[in-house]
Design a protein around this nucleic acid. Sequence first.
DNA 1: ATTATCCGGGG
DNA 2: GTGTACGGATAAT
Length: 829
Amino acid sequence: MMNHKNSMEIDFYPFDFEYKVKEDKTYLHIYAKLKDNKKICVIHEFKPYFYVKINDIDTQELAKRLKNFEIETTKDIPKIVSWEETEKELLGKNQKLWKVKVNYPRAVSIISKELSSWGLDCYDTDILFIHSYLRDNKILPMTLVKAEGKFQENYDDGHNNGELKIPAFIADKIEQVNTESMVRIKYLAVDIECYSKHKEILPEQNPILMIGFYGIDETGNVFKKVLTWKDYTDLDYVEKLKDEKEMLLRFKEIINEYQPEIITGYFSDGFDFPYIRIRADKFNVKLDLGLDGSELITSGKADRNIGSSKIKGIVHIDIFKFIRYIFGKNLKTDSYSLDAVASEILGSKKHEVDLSLLAPAWDNNSKELEKFAEYNLQDAKLTLELCEKLMPDIIEFSKIVGLPIFDLIRMRFSKLVESYILKRAIEYNVLAPNKPGKAEIEQRFEETYQGGFVYEPTPGMYKDIIVFDFKSLYPTIITAHNIGPESLKCDCCEEDIVPEKEEYWFCTKKKAFLPVVLENLILRRSEVKKLIKEKKGEVKSLEARSYALKILANSFYGYMGFFGARWYCLECARSTTAYARDYIKKTIDQAIKKGFKVIYADTDSCFLLLGDKKREEAFAFMYEINLDLPGQMELEYEGQYPRGIFVAAKGSDKGAKKKYALIDQEGRMKITGFETVRRNWSLLAKEVQKKVLGLVLNDKIEESLNYVRETIKELNSGKVELDKLIIKTQITKELSAYSSIGPHVAVALKMEDKGIKIVPGMVVQYIITKGTGLIREKAKLPEEVKEYDANYYLNNQLLPSVSSIFLVLGYKEEDLLNEGKQEGLSKFF
DNA sequence: ATTATCCGGGG
DNA sequence: GTGTACGGATAAT
């Protein structure tokens, strides 16, 4: 198939992107996969550029200055290659511009700075070269692309890295074929285990003991390996090397041989790769893993969550970052540890080992090390499975925002939204406003705005609650009211005046850019949802796409109020929430007018009591509201709850906001705001709170009272299991730095006396024991405890966890402590 | 209440 | 890399 002379056309899936400067020209190096699973590097020239505003500029004079442009630098002389006139819209106003092309990407920054110092306004000066290439050429990563050109043997990229490990294809023309995703991917997960005492991470000092690999190729074949450098096991996947240096060399060899498209790790940007880099440097092992012969690039230290690690031609996915920054909003877990995330997403867990025993086992060459090798492999396996499972989401995101997956998974939401907008800006011939400078950011930081409206509930137990909520409230307000920087306070009409903010209005005649983009996003999602319903296409990808579109749409409002945004518009963000408050308040008023009792409302939701009305009447109310809603706005039925409880705020008789519990018709509890999950509560308090909520919501009040009284009896008799009484608190700094000695510090000091080193970040566990004096004197390590302080647990844990619930039912704390009193219920029903 | 600092993930 | 985190929670004031 290789024809070295004549131009040919090839189809491929691009997955990684770099650029190289060679002989004053800049070339994209697109690492791509062919349909037969072979890899190639497509090389394509593209000129970096930026824009200069020339509205009131003497262009003849400017042309003269650009022609003679020269700047002093040490190397790589920045040059202006060419310029051409163009027009674009900046915040609704037409601008005459020059598109100035330069010789290499960094020259954009150097030359535009110089032009700015002449008093010129420059734009698009900080857009990453590769991103700009993808947007301008309308190339979507991980989808089918075609190129015209020819293969070239022994291609020299001009960087002396050694040879390209895959064939080079010099492209003259490149074009998107369709949006079909690359599905056949070869993955490799990497995980290391290090020597560590007292949780210290010291890559300069402590060796890597094991390197685990778990790979899966296009045909589903699994590759397992653990490298190590001591002899302690006969496990078939463990390979023993002479020493750490030999292990690192073998590590490199394995990656070079396996040659996956995706290499993944869990927190590997912040830990594994930086650690490997430091160890390899120590032994002068060159980590030339890149497909162009370049070395592993790490930035950031092995103990900090900063920077990223890159191998050219292999996409390094730190799956932890994608989960934390993007996917995590989808998850229930509030810890992003591998164990927590894997149990939720995969339903499998890490192997249980005590990592503090790894170093001693290594020192003693113990047989126990085998367990750690198994643990190592399991971590790599979980990481790989996470990566594989989340890949449809990553790819869909990448297709929607048009960014390489390497960049995408490391981005925060604001940047993702902005990338999406930037991609659309090209289609609408819109020029992006520049990013704010330091002073601007500081000023924006000061500016605040009011959020959603929360209706103060009356504490109580309620029956038959119907909840309605506005579907995508903020996005639909933005599109329905055309909220954007260009439409704000337009000159042509003053009709759509913002409630509460009468000084603001939005144009009703000309659509603004952001609402148009957002409207398309919402429509696109409806289409995808329709496809899912009709089961047209690959459901997993469609669902991933729907999710991506949804969270992008939901981020527009936050984006406009985000200090770092290009399309920052505080008035827009303020107006969005002002409209939202207005809509929810109007909904509440309407409900009251219809004879419903409203018990609660928060931002976009409204809780009604059905009372003696029929379900249909509530629905009729919803339809009526919907008749008057503009644009894509819609009030939806969220659910019906046979019972719900709203408690009072601490030390007050007013209802607490955002703190309630509901039970649905299937008996599922929905608990919001109760502290049932906080670390510094004992298991006893958490358990009792949850059980009481469950009983109360099932109308078993008598039973819940008895349960609490029984538990109090058990507590007082000293029979409660000690495990349930452990309180966990984190040590946050050096012990000597604490000025006030709380119980957790006192316990940590005792631990230190026993020879246990206390480092910040450790969580100490303690139980409050019987005795006299200060609480901290009574705090003891769980293993030392014989008798706990029942009084303390009653007054500081058990009662506080349930008293607000019983208060609603008419019982005071005394009533829980003394039997017999049975009044107070009737007034609620 | 408000402001400053710490922390995440990883061994 | 057309660079140098960030947002939430907790502690201190």
